[in-house]
């Protein structure tokens, strides 16, 4: 595992605080312009340790004990990279009933890289992740405002087909959640449900049985998830009999079998032991060659090890800072982010 991000060439600048506002304004979007204005009024010089901004109409944000009351600046979240954004989020607000879980979050996620979302518990990083494939739709009283775009197509637009969206944006959960079925059926579940594979009695009767294709697919997905060697001789066994780490890799394999563009991972290693965690981390780095991976983690070392860029969320659902992982961990612009990264709270 290296600390060197793989997407080095994509970053355009090694920015200083003052450059940010102009860079953001140059981006041209209205919110970026607003960000430029607010960062000017709030004091452009926002080096670590600087006093908080004094925006009068800024609501008081709940803070974790130990956090300084520094005012966040929108400029700190403007991260520039080459190429198009795979996922582009602007002004995202999320509410659970009356409670606001995310507050005007804007960030662009580059393709084929690992983006880590870190922050203290309750900061909304998982909520943010679940906004990307609309899993929050399932939560009673959850409400999402703002725009999330996948390849410039609005995820929350009218007539969006959730099935199609989730085919393209896969997800791996915190707790391994294999289906109580055989290992093989776990892998082929998605393609079958999407009609890419036909198995079963009818298909067999009609001579359309895709069992060979299924076998290939299962092997490919399991190899890709580095699980093949461990389970190739017992594909028919119930997946719940696997160890936790194997189950989680099975869930990743299951996700890969659908061939998504983006893979969301919600603390994928938090329920696992160190050995299994290391395997998952290696896997994530490999996956970034083909897929856009977004990982929520509470483990800062893990974020530093595996990610190309890191977004730091702070209590109250605000995105505090978003930058190349090196920059976040070595030279954060926000005092609160520095404190968080240094372990002073969280």
């Amino acid at each position: 595992m290296s600390d060197t991000p793989q997407s080095e060439p994509r970053r355009s600048d090694d920015r200083s605080g003052a450059d940010d506002a102009t860079a953001a304004a140059a981006a041209g979007s209205t919110d970026a312009a607003a960000a430029a204005v607010s960062s000017k009024t709030g004091g452009i010089a926002g080096p670590p340790g600087g006093p908080g901004g004094v925006d009068g109409d800024e609501p008081a944000v709940a803070r974790t004990v130990g956090e300084s009351d520094e005012q966040l600046q929108d400029a700190w979240t403007d991260y520039e990279f080459d190429g198009d954004a795979k996922v582009s989020v602007s002004d995202l607000d999320t509410y659970y009933g009356e409670e606001r879980a995310l507050e005007s979050v804007s960030l662009d996620i580059p393709a084929e890289s690992v983006t880590a979302l870190i922050g203290p518990s309750g900061c909304g990083k998982s909520t943010f992740l679940r906004c990307l494939n609309r899993m929050n739709d399932r939560i009673r009283g959850a409400r999402v405002e703002g725009r999330v775009a996948l390849d410039d197509r609005d995820v929350y637009g009218d007539g969006v087909n959730l099935v199609e969206l989730r085919r393209q944006v896969g997800m791996v959960f915190q707790e391994p959640n294999p289906f109580p079925k055989s290992i093989r059926d776990n892998i082929s579940y998605g393609p079958r449900k999407h009609g890419d594979l036909e198995t079963g009695l009818l298909a067999r009767l009609l001579g359309r049985d895709d069992r060979d294709a299924e076998r290939d697919l299962v092997e490919r997905a399991l190899r890709r998830a580095a699980l093949w060697d461990e389970v190739s001789d017992r594909l028919g066994d119930n997946a719940l009999g696997l160890s936790g780490g194997q189950q989680q890799r099975l869930c990743i394999a299951r996700c890969l079998a659908v061939d998504p563009d983006v893979i969301l991972m919600d603390e994928p290693a938090s329920a696992l032991d160190p050995v299994a965690t290391a395997k998952i981390e290696d896997l994530i780095e490999e996956l970034a060659e083909e897929y856009t991976v977004v990982v929520v983690t509470h483990n800062m070392q893990q974020a530093a090890r595996i990610s190309d860029q890191t977004a730091v969320f702070l209590t109250g659902g605000r995105l505090a800072e978003y930058d190349a992982t090196d920059a976040i961990f070595q030279n954060p612009q926000s005092q609160r982010v520095e404190d968080y990264v240094a372990g002073k709270f969280g």
């Binding site: 494939n133 899993m135 399932r138 959730l162 099935v163 199609e164 969206l165 989730r166 085919r167 896969g170 997800m171 959960f173 707790e175 959640n177 294999p178 289906f179 109580p180 579940y189 998605g190 449900k193 999407h194 869930c251 299951r254 996700c255 659908v258």
Partner: peptide, 11 residues
Amino acid sequence: SVKSGALAMGS
């Protein structure tokens, strides 16, 4: 979590 897993696969 199992149901969410299936839904997140796009079923």
